[in-house]
Design a protein around this nucleic acid. Structure first.
Lengths: 255, 255
DNA sequence: CAGCGAAAGTAAACACCGTTCACTCAAATG
DNA sequence: CATTTGAGTGAACGGTGTTTACTTTCGCTG
């Protein structure tokens, strides 16, 4: 019956999660390159070949681990956002960004895996990631949402230095987002990623031992860019709520 | 005689560079994890054990490769800087930053090795890197120099969102640099690193296919922050040339 | 309930990898 | 010339991913 076969499937899924749990334990213990099918099988009291009943290859296991971690950090950020009663989009962005950093520093090996360079063979993952369903995109998406709110409220920060026309030509097809929102998201996300990755990869050990002031400065800078709620109406150009607000972008400074 | 022994040393150094060249070729071909002593020995027509006469371990070889690459990209940036006649520090910074990006994108595997997370066993390298002699610090240093020039000219951008007191407590001992210069360098360096690393590690493949507009926007933003030369005297507070210019930092916005 | 068939697991093998040890051989040194 | 030093070899140990053929176990069905 389907009932008993469900049992089988449940058993199968149970061992599969056991595999992934052990893989994560190895990731934590020995870094991304420390994940080993043979060691997992050893810990499970099995043969390495048996794992191939559950996982097509080591790369695929790492890829699955990557998506799981992406989802985990996204859920953590969502939880932090929902735990804060303040509905202000800026506040939400800051809360989520701090949670992102907290999670990354508390799970350095995991964060290194998903934010670092793709391991050989895992590159296909990042390339197949260009649809919104991808876990990585979903993580970014929860930061896009508050920006969209800001845009709808006419409070989107200006990004006068971004060549919007050129950027628009470099976006994937699924760009139903206003180009200004995309530009603000990308610049802010990149800065968030930069301070996080630099800390995570020890790129600043020679220059600074504590990068939290730099992280907080990045957040403060972003927050300062957002016009306050009251100023939305005080803006000279009519910033209506739901209409596309054409950004007045000055001539790009010749460099 | 010392003459003949010098010949021996030269031979030794020649094979050592051959080893490193082959290691780099493997890095280019197969990524950081593709560097293999056995493959190097195979390419050289030798036994893997013979390589241990020249290199104590694989990790050490990778570390040496790292420092070589750090020096290479630094020299490339210096060359680009010196090729430009404009002595303006801002111009020099932009030229060097663009060269850094150009080098990284033209040598993606190498850039991934030095800008990505340290391989297990190579972490000690980044930790021993906290003295200025380190190649990584030297690379950063060539970006510090123009900032120091700007500071001396009273043109240093303000970083009102950085908690300078806390940052000062998180700096290594060798901080003979004014704290404002350090703050500007760190924030700018992190942003430069972020846009580069995000592109290098494919973190944005789902969001954008061409990140050059974002990179150029970061540069333009930095340049726009620097007060023009003429405005140095027009600044309200006396910005004398060589004196420490106490930065007027407003209350950090409560977030 | 017996038996069939699919799923799960095993053993062995292949081709790699880093590293070590004992050994040879040639070359530089005294 | 004898000797010491350095370079290189070959084999081995333990580790890795992956495949193949084989065996066992367990659920379903006749």
């Amino acid at each position: 019956m389907s009932d008993t076969s469900h049992r089988r499937e449940r058993l199968r899924e149970r061992t599969l999660t056991e595999i992934k749990d052990l893989a994560r334990a190895q990731l934590v213990a020995s870094g991304p390159s420390g994940i080993s099918l043979r060691a997992i099988a050893r810990d499970m009291g099995m043969t390495a070949a048996a794992l191939y009943r559950y996982v097509p290859a080591l790369d695929a296991l790492v890829i699955e681990l990557c998506t799981d971690l992406h989802n985990e950090v996204r859920i953590a950020c969502e939880a932090a956002r929902d735990a804060d009663p303040d509905p202000d989009p800026v506040r939400r962005l800051l809360v989520m960004a701090r949670e992102l950093r907290r999670w990354a520093l508390e799970h350095r090996p995991e964060a290194t895996l998903i934010f670092g360079p793709p391991l050989p063979g895992v590159e296909q993952f990042h390339q197949q990631c260009d649809d919104l369903q991808c876990a990585g995109a979903q993580l970014g998406q929860i930061f896009v949402a508050p920006l969209l709110e800001l845009w709808q409220a006419g409070r989107l920060p200006r990004v006068p230095h971004v060549d919007l026309d050129r950027l628009a030509g470099a976006l994937p097809a699924h760009g139903e987002l206003p180009i200004e929102v995309t530009a603000v998201f990308l610049t802010s996300w990149i800065r968030l990623y930069g301070v996080l990755a630099a800390e995570l990869f020890g790129q600043l050990t020679w220059a600074a031992t504590d990068t939290e002031p730099l992280f907080e400065a990045e957040l403060a800078f972003f927050a300062a860019q957002v016009p306050p709620t009251a100023a939305a109406a005080a803006a000279p150009s009519a910033a209506t709520l739901n209409e596309s607000r054409p950004q007045d972008r000055p001539e790009p400074a010749s460099l």
